[in-house]
């Protein structure tokens, strides 16, 4: 009886009892969710345009952030470092296209997916070798990102909103809006969607696969950079971020692999769900549920909708 009460009633009582805490938790979850969505966005970009599930997106986030901070530490001014890092991401994109994607162009998707595994390991090794394994501090101030917090008096208590979080949310949503417009209304966006559908068909209408891939991996690299900056500004830049990036998978599962708004919705569901779950139900099981709660949430969703919330129904023609 006690057990039932503590699972099904008590958390809600707590929520009602301290609504300001609830809002705080939801806000934290919201921000976390936006950042998951950003990582997922990188996956969606590449998947939407090349049909490849880029497992290396997480490490690209870390690598981009490390490059930025590394350059700054070497004495390069902040915004120049930013520009150079964007250049580095372009070089990586071009290299990946040339060395990994081009030789594997007609292989089944699973092979390409596994190639990105290899890429992940490569970038981890390279990153550790060049930048060292220690966590670094993001150059948030130098990039004019806001510091400090707002305190809002509401609902009988205080809700603290970090300014950097608000900035992250705004930047992320702006980027998502731009990318959506890009995909939907520009010529290149249409070409990207064609390539996602079928490499062979896109080739046959004259779309240059190589160019498209470089563009898309570069875009994903820029998204990774911005993600890295935002994540890094909130906590440190370290290789642990790579495991956090795995959490983008449940986000993608929920939101669908090809949907940009889906990535946002999925990210928010996972982010908020995770935080609320950990805060109100976590203490029942000893805490630290954040390592697996996201996957279980996604799993439950998948059981009811195997193609995710926004995904296209998988139709098998026989």
């Amino acid at each position: 009886m006690d057990l039932l009460y503590s699972i099904f009633a008590d958390p809600f009582v707590q929520m009602a009892g301290a609504p300001d805490l609830l809002v705080q938790t939801v806000w934290e979850g919201f921000v976390g969710g936006i950042l998951y969505a950003l990582i997922a966005l990188g996956f969606v970009l590449i998947f939407k345009a090349s049909g490849v599930f880029n497992f290396a997106q997480g490490i690209m986030v870390v690598f981009a952030a490390l490059t930025l901070v590394g350059l700054y530490e070497k004495g390069v001014p902040a915004f120049l470092a930013l520009a150079l890092t964007i250049g580095v991401m372009f070089v990586i994109a071009a290299a990946v296209e040339r060395v990994v994607l081009r030789p594997l162009v007609n292989q089944p998707d699973i092979i390409l997916f596994m190639a990105t595994f290899g890429l992940t390991y490569l970038l981890i090794g390279l990153g550790e070798a060049i930048f060292g394994g220690n966590p670094k501090v993001m150059i948030a101030e130098q990039l004019y990102l806001p510091k400090g917090a707002f305190d809002i008096n509401m609902l009988g208590g205080v809700v603290t909103l970090q300014k950097i979080d608000i900035a992250a949310a705004v930047i992320a949503l702006a980027m998502i809006a731009c990318l959506s417009i890009f995909f939907q209304y520009t010529r290149i966006g249409r070409a990207l969607r064609a390539v996602a559908d079928s490499h062979k068909a896109a080739l046959s209408v004259g779309i240059s696969l190589n160019q498209i891939w470089v563009i898309v991996w570069f875009l994903a690299g820029v998204v990774a950079l911005i993600t890295g900056i935002m994540w890094g500004a909130r906590s440190d830049v370290s290789f642990a971020l790579q495991t956090v990036a795995l959490k983008a998978l449940p986000v993608l599962v929920l939101g669908g692999f090809t949907s940009i708004p889906g990535a946002v919705v999925g990210g928010l569901i996972i982010g908020i769900g995770e935080k609320i779950g950990e805060f109100y139900w976590g203490p029942l099981v000893g805490g630290a549920t954040e390592s697996w709660l996201a996957y279980c949430i996604a799993l439950v969703f998948l059981m009811f909708r195997p193609q995710g919330l926004f995904g296209e129904r998988i139709i098998e023609r026989i």
């Binding site: 030789p103 594997l104 595994f117 290899g118 390991y121 490569l122 090794g125 550790e128 070798a129």
Partner: peptide
Amino acid sequence: TYILLGALIIFFLI
């Protein structure tokens, strides 16, 4: 090891 492992995976897949 990491670098070589990653490179070898890509190499083998190709």
